[in-house]
Amino acid sequence: MTTLDTRLRDLRARRKALVPYFVGGLTSDWTTYVAAAIHAGADVVEVGVPFSDPMMDGPVIQEGALRALGNEATLESICHELAVAAFEVPIVVMTYFNVLHHFGLERSAELLGASGVAGVIVPDLAIEEATPWREVATAADVATVLMVAPSSPIERVRRIGEQSQGFVYAAARMAVTGRASDVGDAARVVQSVRSVCDTPTYVGIGITTPEHASDAGAFSDGVIVGSALVQRILDGASAHDLEGSISSFRLALDTTAREA
């Protein structure tokens, strides 16, 4: 059990989790967006560490990553800023395996742990290849969050459910990150996860509006909102502007929970 497992099980007893995503280093003041999100009711914040070849990301987060790389954001610079900020909610870093592989698995895990990062999502690290990373990450109390896709057969969902730490990331659709018009296959994916494990299960990939959050919140433990927010930052929205949007997601999730 990592600290993230304990914290997210406690959270589940209280409310639906709202997990906004930001690209680390997208702007020089990117941590103020994180702070604003927490103020607006985020329970966990996902922070992207940019990679040159983000194969699981659509155009919005690709553009965010490209800009962050242009600002010379690195694993070390983002960890340093997270350590200084010392946010009170758990931070989960999302990055691609090469970033960790290149820095060194053990060294990455130690850096993330020492910077107060509670977990990581590595979308190109399937369970077959994940063991060496999981071992060093767990030793540093950094949870490895795994993804279940609509295409995952039940035997794989079971193995992923057994191994995922903190929460299970339920992909709502067969697609890369990006905005969408509904919650896709999320209900079926969450149900398959529920049938094999008791780990909190959050829905992501295409959660674009508070209505989507409300829909997904009705059958899951929380939602991840990425491209919808990153697009606004790319368009020039301030941290204050974003706080209003995130509040509306919070309200939608809390209303769903009360009605359930």
């Binding site: 194969m55 699981m56 395996f97 979308p123 190109d124 690290l125 399937a126 369970i127 077959e128 290849e129 795994l146 993804m147 279940v148 896709a149 609509p150 295409s151 995952s152 057969p153 794989r156 992923i160 992909a171 067969m174």
Partner: peptide
């Protein structure tokens, strides 16, 4: 069986693509 040639190769893809691989 996992597609490794020594320490190289393997399958580093999103879960969504693992069933197809």
């Amino acid at each position: 069986e996992g597609g490794h040639f020594g320490s190289f190769g393997g399958r580093f893809v999103p879960e969504a693509l693992m069933p197809a691989c």
